[in-house]
């Protein structure tokens, strides 16, 4: 129901303006704050761009572990379904259900989950194992 430019357009405009027009004139604490803002906008922008794709990828990985039927029976939209499956998986791990095979299929699901999150929060980490910046302490 909202007008154009849409939220992705606005985030992209904000990110580009901050990076190209604001950041070069800043230093010290203000520059640090602006770098953090740029980083936050970029994460939000990538998540909007990605849409429901990451949740679907994670659901596919869960289907490998639990079986197709069990995953789709979880109900709700894909985000809610992922949340509920993560909750189940966390409890199962704590209860020791994967103790004999911690490096088995459960490792695959967990890796898919983290990779999908990192693609939005810090894609450089996946490319170069580089921790996100800036960081002071």
């Amino acid at each position: 129901m909202f007008d154009r430019p849409d939220r992705l357009d606005l985030l992209l405009a904000a990110e580009t303006t901050l990076r190209d027009e604001v950041l070069p004139s800043l230093d010290g604490g203000a520059r640090y704050a602006a770098l953090m803002v740029a980083s936050a906008i970029a994460i939000a922008r990538r998540e909007v761009e990605a849409g429901s794709e990451p949740a679907r990828t994670v659901l596919d990985a869960f289907a490998e572990l639990y079986g197709q039927d069990n995953v789709h029976r979880a109900g709700g939209d894909s985000g809610e379904r992922v949340r509920s499956l993560l909750s189940d998986l966390a409890r199962e791990i704590r209860d020791g259900e994967y103790d004999d095979d911690l490096l088995g299929p459960v490792h695959g699901v967990l890796t898919t989950l983290v990779v999908e999150r990192l693609k939005c929060s810090n894609p450089r980490f996946l490319e170069a194992s580089e921790y996100s910046q800036p960081s002071r302490s």
């Binding site: 949340r83 993560l86 909750s87 998986l89 966390a90 409890r91 791990i93 704590r94 020791g96 994967y98 103790d99 911690l102 459960v106 490792h107 967990l110 989950l113 983290v114």
Partner: peptide
């Protein structure tokens, strides 16, 4: 407030 299965998994290990 949220589940963190990777951290559960690592803590289990």
């Amino acid at each position: 407030p949220r589940p963190y299965p990777v951290l559960e998994w690592a803590t289990r290990w």
